[in-house]
Nucleic acid binder design. Structure first.
Length: 329
DNA sequence: GGTAGACCTGGACGC
DNA sequence: GCGTCCAGGTCTACC
């Protein structure tokens, strides 16, 4: 079997800027993701799944010299042609390189505030499964707890690469665990059974009886996906809306306590929380299919006004300071 | 259809 | 160092 050299060149859309577009969503601060602000490099372990053999973990470091230039993905060990193809596919999903540049332009036409900096793409995970589990670990907890859960999931159940770093566990790995084991090792609390159940569904290829592919199929209507998601364990209105945006469907807002804080702090709204949620939702409704991005980048700019530009944040120092109490300061 | 309370964990706070 | 309180979305029971 011929082995590929461990440097892959990955073409990008003409608007793509690595440092801006990786540091665009909180997941860049969650393990196994790691952004190196000094080197402007993104590193993480990718787990390559070959049905015929054991999962294999490789550490990939991604850099870019300038806007629109192809990315260089440096892999820490030799890979086969098939594995190189899988790395490209995972990186493409994670960085949303397959999202049409025309869609970004349409967003900027509707909300011109983000045109100059070029904000439009949001980081997500290399797999739909990781996006769903990360969303569940963000429900009913403060951000530092979400950080801890993801770190422990990787530490205890992630596949280790040659570098010793670990990736995000696969659905099969978590589906094999007892809920109590997950709770004890990862501190996921009552989410234990829900995470194992979701993992078992992913491992079988069907979520609530619906093939996983149908969720990622562009032909499936947004409302249909939302309906399916709401039926899944641990997924409520907030999580469903967040998963929808992770699937590239930006018409719904994940309304949570951050929405209320944003409504009060930035939009000057007053009154009880439920009313503010409804008003924030109505405030962004005119952005239609781009509502989430208009909402998110406005919120992201608020975070940057407190902590500096996101590509300067250091995971170990900055990430844990994103608590509601500290953001009110 | 709407609402109250339980579910866990970790950080903040008071002593 | 210990105990208590609180924040955070989903789920179930109940009206």
């Amino acid at each position: 079997m011929r082995l590929k050299p461990p440097r892959l060149s990955i073409p990008v859309p003409t608007d793509y800027v690595l440092w801006r577009d990786v540091c665009s969503y909180g997941y860049f601060l969650l393990e196994p993701n790691f952004w190196d602000p000094a080197a402007k490099a993104f590193r993480r372990v990718l787990t390559l799944v070959d049905p015929a053999s054991k999962p294999r973990a490789v550490t990939v470091t991604i850099t870019q010299t300038k806007k629109a230039e192809p990315l260089t993905a440096t892999v820490d060990s030799k890979v086969t042609n098939a594995q190189a193809t899988e790395i490209r596919a995972q990186v493409t999903r994670m960085l949303r390189l397959d999202e049409d540049a025309a869609h970004i332009r349409a967003f900027h036409k509707l909300d011109a505030r983000w045109k100059k900096l070029g904000r439009g793409r949001l980081l997500r995970s290399p797999t739909f499964y990781e996006d769903v589990i990360k969303t569940v670990t963000s429900c009913n907890v403060t951000w530092p707890s979400t950080i801890a859960m993801n770190r422990r999931l990787c530490e205890h159940f992630g596949e280790a690469g040659a570098s010793g770093l670990r990736g995000f566990p696969t659905a099969h790995q978590i589906a094999r665990q007892r809920p109590a084991t997950l709770r004890a090792r990862c501190g996921v609390g009552y989410r234990d059974a829900r995470i194992v159940e979701l993992s078992a569904m992913f491992a079988k290829g069907k979520l609530g009886g619906v093939p996983v592919e149908a969720f990622e199929d562009p032909a499936t209507p947004d409302d249909q996906i939302r309906e399916w998601l709401i039926e899944l364990p641990g997924i409520g209105p907030y999580a469903a809306a967040n998963i929808l945006q992770l699937l590239g469907r930006y018409g719904h807002l994940p309304l949570d306590t951050e929405t209320v804080r944003h409504g009060r702090t930035v939009l000057g709204m007053k009154g009880p929380s439920p009313g503010i949620m409804k008003r924030v939702n109505a405030h962004f409704a005119p952005f239609g299919a781009h509502a989430f991005r208009a909402y998110w980048f406005e919120m992201w700019e608020f975070y940057e006004s407190k902590r500096g530009r996101s590509w300067t944040w250091e995971r170990e120092k900055t990430a844990s300071t994103f608590t509601a109490a500290k953001l009110k300061l």
